[in-house]
Write a protein that binds this DNA or RNA. Structure first.
Length: 589
RNA sequence: CGGGGCGUAGCGCAGCCUGGUAGCGCACCUGCCUUGGGCGCAGGGGGUCCGCGGUUCAAAUCCGCGCGCCCCGACCA
């Protein structure tokens, strides 16, 4: 029997000053966690209990489709070299040396280790498909740990990897994970949504993120209330209203107009008496690519043209050019384009003809929203002048058109046309068709039916254990504390005798706890010699979804059952308490 | 990596400007009292004032360097 008086549940009346988001404040106040260092937390009794319940659910569901491993957190440099990620991961990878001076890394994910096993052990198509998973700590040297448990440097992750003989097999493994994830998050009592995700520079592969809407989140998701369209910002698109173009002026050729001291889109549009959507915004960017051998940095200029009222989506740009970019400095703009910053435009510059060719020329990337438009207004590459009558493809030639725009709330859904909404959310799971990136680079091969060597195709699938807890807290809290879904709460029920010095009450409470225990419920007895108010406040704080008050009414054979989420109180006879909770808590099971 | 803030008892903070006894609330311990929403009274314990160096008769306080933590941005399978 769990007796509160004997347990270490250090609740705090006040939250630490540096806690900002609800989950951080409450998990600390409720005695679930304590911080050890930036982004590194200890899980105390209650936190660990909740944690174990989440992991048990994940494990149970994953065992239906895969096999659990336990892999080292300490990885030799070699396997990260083999996958090419030793250089790629940069400072996010924790690195250390052993006594002999050999390089080691703390695992941030386990593609390398899993693929290493596959490489050594898998020989035949007959051994496929395989789904291997583990639940283990991961380490990332985040530049900025934040928001309590939301972004940390050590965290628990369920990561799974699938190996299939072909793309059709991968589709099956992927679908299994998709369904399993839904079951896991359903059982954890989360209100989540699944969004299409960007698969990064590798391109073309499928990816979904499992998200929980909460203002504490770090991601933006776009969704439609009218249909099931949902995507993250990097992937989201929308249907734009057709803009009737301006009529050409004069002979229809590019026409310079005097725009003294009008630099921003808003200024120019107002000055010329048009809406910003008739203008072109030119963004000058640079890539700095370091040559590994020579150590020299190669830079390339990229100019992005957007409709005047649109925002560039850097993730989309990244996906298009497959390299990091930075804003160009004013001096660079002057030197390269002979144009003052603020008056940059596409005219009179020799642009690369193709993404692959003309490596010495700057790239001109034009957002799709400008494709087919005519008679637009852009900078004239000349102080105090803009140019009218610009038509892409005629007056200048883009290197490429691409979807580079960030969707904004209220734009039309690409599926059904209803207004899109944008919410912040926390990512709790991510499934991803990896392809052969790791199996290829690390040399995993199996023989197929025909005795031919083929590279297994992989998928990877992650769940953040902390984030399930965090999301659950963010989802259900008020000024007094939070309540967790019973499936992941440290205890399902707290039994609170109003006065433990009153032997009748204490005895009745012990009896009730005993019977609930015996019936398989997770119960805690708050037998502390505290005033009722103190015990109620603590009970409200620590996330337990049900409370049983054992008070005066015991003499009439009843106790109160309080539902934390709604504060709904209900008298239940002592004799039927177990039955009552079997109805409430075990109905679905 | 750019910008900002903070570091004094377990938690929340004052003191620092203007150098001289280290304080308040909560928590904790003892006793009494109280028992349906963080009760009351009395007594008590607890501090390398983030660290190092400097100035000074004297440093929590002034100066320098360092470290840690938080926030915004950048970054982020």
């Amino acid at each position: 029997m769990h007796r509160w008086s004997e347990l270490f549940i250090p609740t705090l009346r006040e939250a630490p000053a540096d806690a900002e988001v609800a989950s951080h404040k409450f998990l600390v106040r409720a005695g679930y966690i304590r911080q050890l260092a930036a982004g590194i937390y200890s899980y105390l009794f209650l936190g660990n209990r909740s944690f174990n319940k989440i992991m048990a659910i994940v494990r149970q569901e994953m065992d239906r489709i895969g096999q659990e491993f336990f892999l080292p957190a300490l990885h030799p440099r070699e396997i990260w070299e083999a996958s090419g990620r030793w250089a790629l991961m940069g400072d996010n990878l924790f690195r250390l040396k052993d006594r002999k001076g050999a390089d080691l890394a703390l695992g941030m994910t386990e593609e390398e280790v899993m693929t290493e096993i596959a490489r050594k052990e898998l020989r035949s198509y007959k051994q496929l498909p395989q789904i291997w998973y583990q639940i283990a700590p991961k380490f990332r040297d985040e530049p900025r740990p934040r928001s309590g448990l939301l972004r940390v440097r050590q965290f628990m992750m369920k990561d799974a990897y699938s190996f299939d003989i072909d793309a059709a097999g991968l589709d099956v493994s992927y679908k299994k994970h998709y369904d399993t994830y839904c079951r896991i998050f359903d059982r954890c009592g989360l209100k989540y949504m699944v969004v299409e995700a960007d698969s990064g520079a590798m391109g073309g592969k499928e990816s979904h993120e499992f998200m929980v809407r909460t203002p504490a989140g770090e991601d933006q998701i776009v969704s439609c209330d009218g249909c099931d369209y949902a995507a993250n910002m990097e992937k989201a698109t929308s249907k734009l209203d057709v803009v009737p173009d301006l009529a050409p002026e004069g002979d229809g050729k590019p026409l310079e107009v005097h725009t003294p001291a009008q630099k921003t889109i808003e200024d120019v549009a107002r000055f010329l008496g048009v809406l910003p959507k008739y203008t072109i915004k030119a963004l000058a960017l640079m890539t700095d690519e370091k040559d590994e051998k020579t150590g020299n940095t190669k830079s390339r200029a990229i100019v992005v043209l957007m409709r005047g009222d649109h925002q560039l989506n850097e993730a989309k740009l990244n996906g298009t050019v497959a390299i990091a970019t930075r804003p160009m400095e004013e001096g660079e703009i002057r030197a390269l384009f002979k144009s003052p910053a603020g008056y940059l435009g596409p005219l009179g510059i020799e642009w690369a003809k193709d993404l692959k060719k003309d490596a010495d020329r700057p790239l001109l990337l034009v957002d799709e929203a400008l494709e087919g438009r005519t008679n637009l207004i852009a900078g004239a590459n000349k102080e105090n002048y803009h140019a009218k009558n610009l038509t892409p493809g005629k007056d200048f030639h883009p290197t490429a058109y691409a979807d580079l725009r960030s969707v904004t709330a209220g734009e039309a859904c690409p599926n059904c046309g209803k207004a899109l909404r944008i919410d912040t959310a926390v990512e709790i799971g991510h499934i991803f068709k990896l392809g052969c990136r790791y199996s290829e680079s690390m040399g995993a091969r199996v023989l197929d039916k025909n005795g031919k060597e083929v590279t297994p195709i992989m998928g990877c699938y992650g769940i953040g254990i902390e984030r399930i807890l965090t999301a659950a807290v963010e989802q259900s809290n008020d000024e007094n504390g939070f309540w967790l879904p019973p499936s992941i709460a440290p205890f399902e029920i707290v039994v609170t005798p109003i006065n433990v010095k009153d032997q009748t009450l204490l005895k009745a409470a012990v009896d009730i706890v005993g019977r609930l225990d015996a019936a398989g419920f997770d119960v805690i007895l708050d037998d502390r010699d505290e005033r009722p108010g103190v015990k109620f406040k603590d009970a409200d704080l620590v996330g337990i979804p049900f409370r049983i008050n054992v008070g005066k009414k015991v003499t009439e054979g009843t106790v109160e059952v309080v539902l934390r989420s709604t504060r709904e109180v209900r008298d239940v006879t002592i004799s039927s308490v177990v039955e009552h909770f079997q109805g409430v808590l075990r109905a679905k099971a």
